[in-house]
Design a protein around this nucleic acid. Sequence first.
DNA 1: CCGAGTCAATCAATCGATTGATTTATGGGT
DNA 2: ACCCATAAATCAATCGATTGATTGACTCGG
Lengths: 241, 241
Amino acid sequence: MSQNLVQQNNLDDTPLSEKAFDDTRQRLIQAAVSVFGSQGFEGASTRRIAALAGTNISSIAYHFGGKENLYLAVADHIAQEIGQKVDGVEALLANERERIRNGTLPPAEAVVLLQRLWREWLDELLSNKEPGYEWTWFVIREQANPTEAFDRIYNASISRFLCILAELIGCIQQSPAQSLTVRLQAVLLFGKMLSFEREHAAVERYLGWKTLDETAKNTIRAAVNEEVARLLVRSEETLSC
Amino acid sequence: MSQNLVQQNNLDDTPLSEKAFDDTRQRLIQAAVSVFGSQGFEGASTRRIAALAGTNISSIAYHFGGKENLYLAVADHIAQEIGQKVDGVEALLANERERIRNGTLPPAEAVVLLQRLWREWLDELLSNKEPGYEWTWFVIREQANPTEAFDRIYNASISRFLCILAELIGCIQQSPAQSLTVRLQAVLLFGKMLSFEREHAAVERYLGWKTLDETAKNTIRAAVNEEVARLLVRSEETLSC
DNA sequence: CCGAGTCAATCAATCGATTGATTTATGGGT
DNA sequence: ACCCATAAATCAATCGATTGATTGACTCGG
């Protein structure tokens, strides 16, 4: 028994040390996303993170230099993750990118694009049992109580996403994407997309759904689609209060 | 100096012991709402709560029997607070209560009522510098990760509020208030009303508002009013995806 | 004097961080 | 091929600080 688990999995020519290094580092970040997201920075314990990652506590200090730096590393990881998601969105919108940017895309088409965008986002949230989307909790916490981690995530990825949302809403409402109302709606829309992760626990309880079956998912999808479609309405007469 | 602070504030005939008892109890709950709301149950320390309340740690055990029971006492306090808010809403809707309940209130009028309801809610959030509305954080946390505290709050007050919201939305969309889609929208609407407290920190950062001046508030109010007005739209043709 | 209420002091447990020892992988010399 | 020095990585053990909880003494009004 001269080989350990790491050796047995060494299928390429990567040096074993680097492989173990990256592996432990990745597992620590993965575990940290989960624990930081559900417990917050102060509530999370490095012992729990290390245990969840299947390694020793001191690995955190060794790989990241402490709890705080691990937290920031998680932020960078999430920023990268969201960035890839935004890349996917931009690919989805590639054909109409020019018309979206200058606001010449017809409102009806912009609605359909925004619905598809949100639909894909939502399906990932609804399908995922628990593994992947714990980062939303992390972002929600940082959004509510911003630290340096929020700045990193925002500057690296969220700002791009908000820009796209604003452009689409601008097309829908025939308003410049830079206008205050459009940008505000973009922020609120992003908040709604994030909150679905948080609210679906409450939704289940409120509506008596023990699990989200296909009927429930379709109801939620329809509500989201309607929410987007309603962006078409710009009613000035309702501002009377 | 034979009198302490408690004695100096004893302006009525309440026995000093009872007054001190209720006073400390109240200050502890008030502090606990703030600390539990911002830090969560595990992240909050009884020392910080006691210090914020200006009393000794052991008072928590004396008055509530421990950290956990204090947490539940906070939940009951919040339930009572929301309950009073729902009472105010019901008073606001008193004249139209019957028509709302049986769904005969015209959609346009229901929109105006719902706008006024949310407007009052929003103004309290926006006007408050920081003192009062920390309980929203508590509820948001519990909504995301329900414990026994959530059941207490929900059963005592939120359920009533959701019922009213569903009835109003039912009037607006000419659908029964018990239907799944209407109830889902009521839950999501309540989530939005709660989230404004959380999101306005992000909104300030996204939109470059360092503080919420009157112009910013009006922009938010207009966005909320439009959001409600859009409930009038029930577009079946947009469910195509 | 009695009980209600508060206080400082202290408990075991756990926190983040650090240490020195141990194991593992790499590279150079023979 | 073989050995060994060096570095990389992880480990158990421990540090002081802080956690929630408890205790016994103390100060009051009744």
